Lab assay of single mutants.
Amino acid sequence: SEIVVAMYDFQATEAHDLRLERGQEYIILEKNDLHWWRARDKYGSEGYIPSNYVTGKK
């Protein structure tokens, strides 16, 4: 599975969105859409994140 790191904070506005915290790692579950990826955080929460807010883990 692909691990990404959040470059920016993202506040979830929709129920299906996942909040991003800058510097935290997330697991990508689905990339069915170019701009919104389904991800899981370290607490096990899942939701959609803006793909341009994250970068591949170095």
Rank of each mutant, 00 (worst) to 15 (best):
S1T: 13
S1R: 13
S1E: 14
S1C: 15
E2C: 14
E2N: 10
I3F: 08
V4K: 02
V4I: 03
V4Y: 11
V4W: 09
V5D: 00
A6T: 01
M7K: 10
M7V: 10
Y8T: 05
Y8A: 09
Y8L: 10
D9I: 04
F10Q: 03
F10Y: 15
F10N: 02
Q11C: 11
A12Y: 04
A12D: 06
T13V: 14
E14P: 03
E14K: 14
E14L: 12
A15S: 12
A15G: 10
A15R: 10
D17G: 15
D17R: 15
D17V: 15
L18Y: 02
L18F: 06
R19K: 13
R19F: 07
L20F: 04
L20Y: 01
L20E: 02
E21D: 08
E21M: 08
E21R: 07
E21K: 09
R22A: 13
G23H: 06
G23F: 07
Q24L: 08
Q24I: 05
E25N: 06
E25S: 09
E25Q: 09
Y26I: 02
Y26E: 00
I28F: 01
L29N: 00
E30G: 06
E30T: 08
E30Q: 09
E30V: 05
E30A: 09
N32C: 15
D33H: 10
L34C: 13
L34P: 15
L34D: 15
L34G: 12
H35I: 13
H35K: 10
H35S: 09
W36V: 08
W36I: 08
W37P: 00
W37H: 03
R38K: 14
A39Y: 03
D41T: 01
D41E: 00
D41R: 01
K42M: 12
K42S: 08
Y43G: 06
Y43Q: 08
Y43M: 08
G44V: 01
G44W: 03
S45T: 12
S45L: 14
E46S: 05
E46V: 10
E46N: 03
E46T: 08
E46R: 02
G47P: 00
G47T: 04
G47A: 02
Y48P: 01
Y48I: 09
Y48M: 14
Y48K: 07
Y48A: 04
I49V: 09
I49T: 03
I49H: 01
P50W: 06
P50G: 03
P50T: 03
S51N: 07
S51P: 06
Y53E: 02
V54N: 03
T55Q: 11
T55A: 10
T55D: 08
T55C: 13
G56R: 12
G56I: 14
K57N: 11
K58I: 15
K58H: 14
